[in-house]
Design a protein around this nucleic acid. Structure first.
Lengths: 151, 151
DNA sequence: ACCTAACTGAAAGTCATTTTCAGTTAGGTT
DNA sequence: AACCTAACTGAAAATGACTTTCAGTTAGGT
């Protein structure tokens, strides 16, 4: 099984969580793949790798890993909840193709000023935001010209 | 039953949809309440109003109304799909309190430039985005100081 | 009044997610 | 190294949002 960065293990221990086999398998998957995945897809991927992890544990541990801040949950337009590694210090969003589902990450989020303004006008304390941009990648633009099916 | 604006009816007819009783009840709810709601909540609200609308029809018609552009579907951080009226010509986002669920709408979305940049750098055609900002309203900030429960 | 494609509700089905529960284990303590 | 126990596990059952099916019903054009 792949190595888990010491800071990640420390993060778990410091909040009273153990580094169990399922937890290890799940983290290993994210560190190896560096991409987004749903709970169901992750479960299937782990079964294929013979990681011996139950579906229940996948759900429970994704929740724990979000809680300790190692993962982030992103809600897609289709209602799917996907999970991804939180890259330390990095602030990223996604450009998603509604034709093929391809995801392009980008940084350079222009929302900081807006959030400051909202805090002063509304009295809220802002602590996070969710932004996804939807469109069609070049390939899917061509396909739809040819009259093909899409999501 | 409340009156439905003629443009809304026209919008349905022009796309081959009829103004049925369930459709009318659902639109009436949105025009009266001017707020967001989930499919389940809307069903319960309509039952309470004795609108005589089945759950199946609620789901089917929310889908139709989104398709013709009268409603918009917003995915919340908790995974809930909520629906709201599309205000003609208006571009709005939401500031959501994770303590009490209160929603504040705001306009003044600073994403147009970002989207243009993304189009040139990635070759995507951008056609919509989803943005929600989460925080705590003044009231819930006070409550959590007092050690109360929250979402 | 008639016609018919669009539509309806009830019931059954699907599928992601959560809960329950009887054991198991990580990892600190003696 | 054996021990302790709260954290954890997987299987099975339960939940709950949403979809499909189907036998009728209706809006609205002719």
């Amino acid at each position: 099984m792949a190595k888990i960065p010491a800071e990640a293990v420390e993060r778990l221990h410091s909040q009273g969580y153990k580094l169990t086999k399922p937890r290890q398998a799940i983290l290993a998957w994210f560190f190896a793949e560096q991409t987004m995945i749903t709970a169901q897809e992750l479960y299937r991927a782990l079964v294929q790798r013979k990681a011996g992890v139950g579906l229940t544990s996948v759900y429970r541990n994704l929740e724990v890993l979000v809680e300790v801040g190692l993962l982030r949950q992103v809600c897609f337009h289709d209602g799917c909840q996907r999970f991804e590694l939180v890259q330390p210090g990095e602030h990223q969003h996604h450009l998603i193709c509604s034709g093929c589902g391809r995801v392009i990450k980008f940084s350079g989020c222009p929302l900081a000023k807006l959030e400051r303004d909202l805090e002063t006008t509304t009295g809220f304390t802002v602590d996070r935001h969710s932004l996804q941009i939807f469109g069609r990648c070049r390939q899917c633009q061509e396909e739809s010209t040819l009259g093909n099916r899409s999501i």
